[in-house]
Amino acid sequence: MDDELSRVAISIYQKAKKGNYYCGDSYYYKETENEFVCALADGLGSGEPAMDSSQAVMDIIEKYPELPIESIIKKCNEALLGKRGVVLGILKIDFNQNTYSYSSIGNIGVITIDQDGHRSRNIPLAGYLAGYPRKLRVSRGKAGEGMVFMMFSDGVQDRRLSAKHTSTRNVKFITEQYKQLYGENRDDDTTLIAMKYK
């Protein structure tokens, strides 16, 4: 799926684990006049119960996209009481300040590629959200024109997102290339979201 928003270009490749009808990964994104938010959650396990948990988190983010990341995650955590846990990544771009912030809990990966082609891979906090309080870490930086962000679930092996395949600023090419090369080898639910700040 591709979307040319006014400030962000986004392309998404998603497939359920081989043999599964339901995908346990859920995502949400929204661009407003002031900011862009994108979130990806992977429910623990697979199938419908995993999808139920990840979608519950997306419903919260859709309801409160304007809140700071820390507050959003706190609300997501509360929504998971009595459900399976999730791993979660949230990215925000502030158009007025030209800054970005993101947080990743569990094995949701985030890669940033700045205007000079410098790649940075985040180290997510270990664990998952499951209704109990936990520590958070939010990374922040300057968002420059043409900067690329990739967010992905553990069905994507980040070593396959090599510089050779992601040196382009074309987000559709990034997801299409990944789909063609690795789309059939799915031992887990797979979601790759590529975004460019225009």
Rank of each mutant, 00 (worst) to 15 (best):
I69V: 15
P65T: 10
Y100V: 06
R134K: 15
F95K: 02
G127R: 12
E33H: 13
T166K: 07
E145R: 10
D116G: 01
K30P: 02
Y128D: 05
R84F: 04
I108E: 00
G146A: 06
L91T: 01
N96R: 13
T112C: 09
P49A: 11
D114A: 11
E70T: 15
Q14F: 01
Y64C: 02
G146H: 08
E31D: 05
K83C: 05
L91N: 05
K15G: 06
P65L: 06
Y102A: 11
S46A: 12
G131L: 11
G43Y: 05
N96L: 11
S26K: 09
D3R: 12
N107M: 06
Y182V: 09
D25E: 01
S6G: 07
I60K: 04
S153F: 03
V37S: 00
P68M: 09
F36A: 04
L40M: 01
I10A: 12
P65K: 02
K135Q: 08
I12C: 02
T190M: 01
N96S: 13
S54T: 00
S46F: 14
I72M: 13
L91V: 10
D114H: 04
D59R: 13
Y132P: 08
G82F: 11
Y13L: 08
D188P: 00
D189P: 04
K74W: 07
S101Q: 14
K15S: 13
Y64N: 01
Y102M: 08
Y178A: 11
N185L: 03
Q55P: 06
G85C: 05
M147L: 03
S104L: 02
H165F: 15
S53E: 03
Q157H: 10
D116S: 13
M51Y: 15
K196Q: 07
R160P: 07
Y132C: 14
V86Q: 03
K92H: 15
V148A: 08
T99A: 13
Y22M: 11
K74Q: 07
K196D: 02
V156K: 07
N122A: 13
Y182H: 14
T168H: 01
G24A: 13
G106L: 02
